[in-house]
Write a protein that binds this DNA or RNA. Structure first.
Length: 522
RNA sequence: GCGCCCGUAGCUCAGUGGACAGAGCGGCGGACUUCUAAUCCGCGGGUCGGAGGUUCGAAUCCUCCCGGGCGCACCA
């Protein structure tokens, strides 16, 4: 791999990271007088860590980068921060760490245990993450599953970073879509076909066969699916509930009347154009409910409101932030996370999804065929900026090839070792190794040490897909180590057992952050 | 027309200024008497869509162009 893994970005992204690598970076920063970012070089000859700080400083200091690097190296050695340091290439500074340092670092990881990498938020906030929020006109689809997988992982990451997070589901129980939904169910109950613009599908027939309002059973089916998908919502909010608060909200906004309608002057707050609050027929539009809803969210005391929306809603960003601003909050405290859409492919052809036609891939069906772990992994392992093409047929075959099993297998393998160690009465108790650490051991420790900064960055930048990418690297390093070295009955048994335990905890943590299980055996 | 996202290996995708651009899948060839072979090792594979620009240094930043997706309501 190439050099570009950032290991210590604590100085420019507002997080408080205190792991061994970040402390090394901090010490070097003090010497250099400028932020030092450490990377892991791709080439083993380039040391354990490297920094380009001398290249950055060269223009302002008016000295050759290699000279600056040499001075830094000398001072770092004098302070015994590193085992060896030398300038290289155009002005990089390559650092070599001792086994002692790595063993101490591993000890530190085990010392903090489950919370390794946690609590990096410099300024913990109360954050509400609103996600999914599909209207209860039908079961959740594969398309909304991405919203759920992405949003929930964001929530888990924020929470891990130390924020106080609440998950909310907002849905509409009135409006055109719901009227069509009701009309469809009622038509079936009368023994008629659903209207042309109504909803079809088996689930409509099922709802029609039940007595009473079809919405509650529909909602509980949605909630069941979400729980199965390992997502729990703290609060469920009906649009009709917030509608009563529309007048109070509008009173706080910058409004005017035009063509018998009431408008919000959102264009004065960064939006493309003004938006209608009250239609000319006197009824409030959807945007008025949004205003009331946002006001209520802030009134509940949240510092930050996160919306998770599909790319088809990206036009909403400006108007929602305008509302936040008009209601007296920073526009940036209302954050809209946009993910690109999921396109279903079947037999090589695009499959159009329409709930009304009943031509949909439901999340439950996907979970039946590929399982929760593979589904969550798959949906969150791509960048949210990337459109996903999901081939439903292929997804079934692909399960065994999904990298999620590669990562889970690493966890299960370690569990096997630890089980056997426990059977033999061997306690995990880190001790200095009896001989020099092997390359695979050093690589694995360094990999584990990447986690705090990586998790902080994933959280700060809202990029949960960085977690599975990293987890594959961890599993990679572990499988290589495992293949090359015996743990039990080896010269370095104590060190290796400790290394295994730390790796297992970290793999489990990564999987948990994306809602995937860590199996004890496979 | 305007706005947002994307274009990296045959396929699916990592990589938001640094050293020869990476992984998985697929292809070919090797490795189980061991704590799990759902693993490991090797080989092949690239005009980073194109052209300019900024920089000591660009897949990464800027401009333009080409291609694809999604939006631009007194709908929700």
């Amino acid at each position: 791999m190439t050099a570009s893994l950032r290991l210590a970005a604590a100085y420019d992204c507002g997080v408080a990271v205190t792991d061994p690598v970040s402390r090394l970076a901090a010490a070097l920063t003090e010497i250099a007088g400028a932020p030092v970012v450490l990377e892991r070089p791709g080439d083993a000859d380039h040391g354990d860590y490297a920094t380009n700080v001398a290249l950055k400083l060269a223009p302002t200091q008016g000295r050759p980068p290699r000279d600056i690097a040499a001075d830094l190296a000398a001072e770092a050695l004098r302070r015994e921060l590193v085992e060896a340091a030398e300038p290289a290439g155009p002005g990089f500074l390559n650092l070599h760490m001792s086994d002692t340092w790595l063993v101490a670092a591993l000890g530190e990881i085990l010392g903090v245990g489950e919370s390794f990498g946690a609590g990096t938020a410099a300024d913990p906030e109360r954050i509400q993450v609103e996600m999914v929020s599909a209207n209860p006109t039908g079961p959740l689809t594969v398309a909304t599953a991405r919203n759920a997988a992405y949003g929930d992982s964001i929530a888990r990451l924020l929470s891990f970073a130390g924020h106080d997070v609440e998950r909310e589901y907002y849905y509409n129980d009135a409006g055109t879509q719901m009227e069509r939904f009701y009309a469809s169910v009622e038509a079936l109950r009368r023994g008629e076909e659903p209207p042309d613009d109504g909803y079809r599908g088996e689930y409509i027939a099922e709802l029609a066969s039940l007595p009473g309002d079809p919405v509650p059973p529909m909602l509980s089916r949605i909630e069941e699916t979400l729980e199965r998908f390992r997502i729990h919502f703290d609060t469920w909010v009906l649009q009709s509930d917030v509608e009563s608060e529309i007048p109070e909200a509008i009173a706080l906004l910058d409004t005017y009347e035009h063509d018998d309608a009431v408008w919000a002057r959102t264009s004065a707050h960064g939006d493309d154009k003004d938006r209608v609050l009250i239609r000319s027929d006197g009824t409030p539009g959807y945007f008025a409910a949004d205003a009331a809803y946002i006001r209520r969210k802030y009134a509940k005391g949240f510092d930050r409101l996160v919306y998770v929306l599909g790319a088809d809603h990206h036009g909403y960003v400006g108007r929602l932030q305008a509302l936040a601003e008009m209601l007296g909050h920073s526009r940036n405290s209302l954050e809209v996370l946009i993910y690109q859409l999921v396109h279903l492919v079947e037999a090589g052809e695009a499959r159009k999804m329409s709930k009304r036609r009943g031509d949909v891939a439901f999340l439950d069906d996907l979970l039946d065929t590929i399982g929760v772990d593979a589904a969550r992994w798959y949906l969150v392992s791509r960048s949210h900026d990337q459109t996903i093409e999901l081939d439903v047929d292929l997804a079934k075959q692909r399960t065994q090839k999904n990298p999620v099993y590669y990562v889970q297998y690493a966890h299960a393998r370690i569990a096997g070792i630890l089980r056997k160690a426990a059977e033999e009465g061997i306690a995990v108790d880190l001790d200095a190794p009896g001989c020099a650490l092997a390359r695979e051991e050093r690589d694995l420790v360094k990999r584990l040490l990447e986690f705090p900064v990586l998790a902080a960055e994933a959280s700060e930048r809202r990029i949960p897909h960085a977690i599975p990418t990293y987890a594959i690297r961890v599993a990679d390093d572990f499988h290589r180590f495992y293949h090359q070295h015996r743990v039990l009955d080896s010269e370095n048994q104590k060190f290796r057992l400790a290394l295994c335990l730390a790796t297992q905890q970290l793999v489990a943590r990564c999987l948990d952050l994306i809602g995937v299980e860590a199996p004890e055996q496979m």
